[in-house]
Design a binder for these strands. Sequence first.
DNA 1: AACACGAACAGAAACGTTTCGGTTTTAAAA
DNA 2: TTTTAAAACCGAAACGTTTCTGTTCGTGTT
Lengths: 331, 331
Amino acid sequence: MKDIAKLTGLGLATISSYFNGGNVREKNRKKIEEAIEELHYEVNEVARNLKTNATKTIGVVIPELNNIFCAEIITGMEDILRNHGYATMICDCRTDKKLEREAVEFLCRKRVDGIINMPVDAEGGHLKAFQKTGKPIVLIDRKIQGVSCDSVLVDNEQAAADAVKLLYENGHRNIGIIGGPKEISTAQERMKGYFSELKNLDIPVRESLVVHGDYTIQGGVRAMEELVEKNPEMTAVFVTNYEMTMGAVIGSNELGIQIPDQISMVGFDNLPFARACNPKLTIVSQPTEKIAEKAAGIMLARLEDRDGASPYQTEKLETAIIPGKSIAQIR
Amino acid sequence: MKDIAKLTGLGLATISSYFNGGNVREKNRKKIEEAIEELHYEVNEVARNLKTNATKTIGVVIPELNNIFCAEIITGMEDILRNHGYATMICDCRTDKKLEREAVEFLCRKRVDGIINMPVDAEGGHLKAFQKTGKPIVLIDRKIQGVSCDSVLVDNEQAAADAVKLLYENGHRNIGIIGGPKEISTAQERMKGYFSELKNLDIPVRESLVVHGDYTIQGGVRAMEELVEKNPEMTAVFVTNYEMTMGAVIGSNELGIQIPDQISMVGFDNLPFARACNPKLTIVSQPTEKIAEKAAGIMLARLEDRDGASPYQTEKLETAIIPGKSIAQIR
DNA sequence: AACACGAACAGAAACGTTTCGGTTTTAAAA
DNA sequence: TTTTAAAACCGAAACGTTTCTGTTCGTGTT
């Protein structure tokens, strides 16, 4: 920049102004552009970062990158953020609370301008330190108790209720559920939707029809085996996340159970997989693209608006059921 | 840091030395640590970056984040890199050459210390500008002509040959192939492996058995339909990437073709999906974890070693065939 | 006790920007 | 032409480190 100043005879401030959209007289603008060309100048963002105390980088902490649900959301967010000049630093914490905390600390040290987090630790202790910096946090998919910040969620209760209702309408009364880890809010909500809809429909809850998996493929396999073994009269299963849906499909394949002839199934997430199943799976689909948009949008709003005082918002998005052929009409 | 100096009565250089693993007398070390505690000091990495002209950040440019193959590799790399203090900036270029170039430019502006790229543009023009900075580039999965740098690849030709051989051993003689885009090196190599193994086995090539897809699900569906329509005598199909494998499965489901009774299949990548298929799919599996390790390892070596003059290396890793139940023994 | 020598320390300069307060230029109004 | 307000410009200081060039300190040797 000094060289440019020298070459053009202008002051540093003017050059800086040029780069930051300030007002510069046309002929000077020309001179500057010539100088840039000649010197192959490129602004040093690091120096700028130091001075402005902002890195134009936002950190993303997620439980598993190689989980399509996460990957889809990140793809969407990264796109939007990058189009606004923000880089995305991703940290995969392998669904481990300790690693999650470390990831946040790491990003903190890297001085990201904000963090988007799909939390593993429902207590939220891992975010406390970062929050003290006053920089924005956006939670996605799962809510957290202690941390006051924006979040974008999905109406999981409604999603589960819809799934149960759909099965009911097709004549099913013995509907099993493969739920998620009890401490994760999405799992609680989906479970709640299941219970409330059963109650709604005057179907008594049977404990043996309720199994808790751990949101993994292997967990889905085991849960499916358990359900089938314990409930010979069961006619349908609702599986509450993608990995376990895969597991449930694997499980029924390996048990030799025909879907939907012997058991009907409603899965969760990932349309391509559902479509690749034989028969095509009926699933609850989450609006990943919208989640990404909302999360990135809120983050950008917090970062660009100086009137940061707007109250924290919680977006709740609707899911949809994508019909397949995995539900048998019975009776 | 100045405050720390003031508080301890030490000089700036000593404090800096303390933070960079230099020698500091024990009592001074203590003093410094107390001061840090009292001031809640944390080093400002941005300032450090400015001074050292390194950001401890490496950029990753890939065609699609939400493609398990990419996601798995990134997961592995990110883990390793972060454990060495490096952050990972991910750019998903949506399999678009123009976006890929923009991504590289973006990362260049962000002053990443190196770029790991799974290239979309086989010409490699998008990397030229970055290469001029003298910073390291590591190519993964696909090779490129013009750019001289390290790369870590997979032995695609062997992979394809293995698949064909396996089908042959099970009695198949009319083996179709769903190949990838002609300009992508992995697709070329897999195709080459198919041809050379056929030749090896004295099976004449039939043009109608060779279809080029575009590495997408939809492309796989279409390719499968085309193959089936054109080749009533075909008994087996080899599909050469994950998305198209999914597509081929979808296609045969929708055409009502039984696997493996009517057509045998060997797919590519993603064990969980293969296992979830009914029947379980036999696939060629790429060593994503190893690719990640190698790529991150090479990158770190380039960054840490000052004798950067070591010659560029090209790692070629072996694939494996994971047996399923999608191959029928015929004749 | 004097000496030498390496380890430990000190201070200033530099990295490349932005920004603040103040000055000059420009163009419109009188 | 003069006046005036706004627009454009200038240079120094600052952001928080690292590093270079010396200086001082500690320790073991004669």
